Amino acid sequence: MSDLGALTYYLSIEVRQGREALMLGQSAYASKLLERSGMTECKPCVTLMEERLKLTKASTAAKVDATLYRSIVGDMRYLVHTRPDIAFAVGYVSRFMEDPREDHWATVKRLLRYIKGTVDHGIIFPKTGGSRLQLTVFSDADMAGDIHGRQSTSGVLVFLGSALISWLSLK
């Protein structure tokens, strides 16, 4: 067995270890995702999705290439490991993988434009320096927000540490 030094890269996750924090990101993976989707030259946007966007499985818009749609959304699902800010939007567009339509694809493209503008974002875990750990929990639900099946989407964030985990630019 040999010592390879400090971890810097593992399964497309970039690891930076500093004195104050441990940083995880996937900027190279995000750039490859934009390249595979043909969105490297797109104009970045600052928001993930349109406000109060309601997509449906019963859309009458034109069909899109289901293989490409599934591939891009699947790649974005892996990007969520270090990008919790896109988790809801990726989960939302994942609902339409069975029969993707133009309006679903437009939402995916907007998400890709957001990723283009935030390609260097990731997670920062501050080092606590021996201070007491604090448990912080947030939860939310949209109360039957799925217009097709009237199911609720809920989410829970659990933080254990002296500070909240943030997703900031790693540069």
Rank of each mutant, 00 (worst) to 15 (best):
V137W: 01
A30M: 03
A58I: 01
G149K: 14
M97W: 00
S31L: 01
L53K: 13
S94L: 08
T136E: 08
M76F: 05
R132W: 03
Y69S: 08
S166R: 13
I123G: 05
M23D: 06
A58T: 09
E102P: 03
M76V: 06
R19P: 02
H148E: 14
G130V: 09
D103S: 11
H148R: 05
L4D: 05
L170K: 09
Y29D: 03
C42D: 03
V137G: 00
I86S: 02
E50V: 13
S169F: 06
I124N: 04
L168D: 03
L164K: 07
R83I: 08
F125R: 00
L135T: 01
M97K: 00
V80T: 15
Y9G: 02
I13W: 05
S27N: 06
Y69I: 10
I147F: 05
I147W: 06
S169I: 05
K57H: 07
Y92P: 11
A6E: 04
I86N: 05
I86H: 04
G74E: 09
I72L: 07
S94Y: 06
R52E: 14
S152H: 03
L164F: 10
L170H: 10
I124K: 06
A163Q: 14
T47C: 14
G149S: 13
L55C: 12
A106G: 08
S59V: 08
R110L: 09
T128C: 14
Y114H: 11
Q17E: 09
T67P: 02
A21L: 05
G91Q: 10
A106M: 13
V73S: 03
R77L: 11
L22I: 15
E20P: 00
Y9D: 01
G74Y: 06
E50F: 07
Q26S: 04
R95P: 04
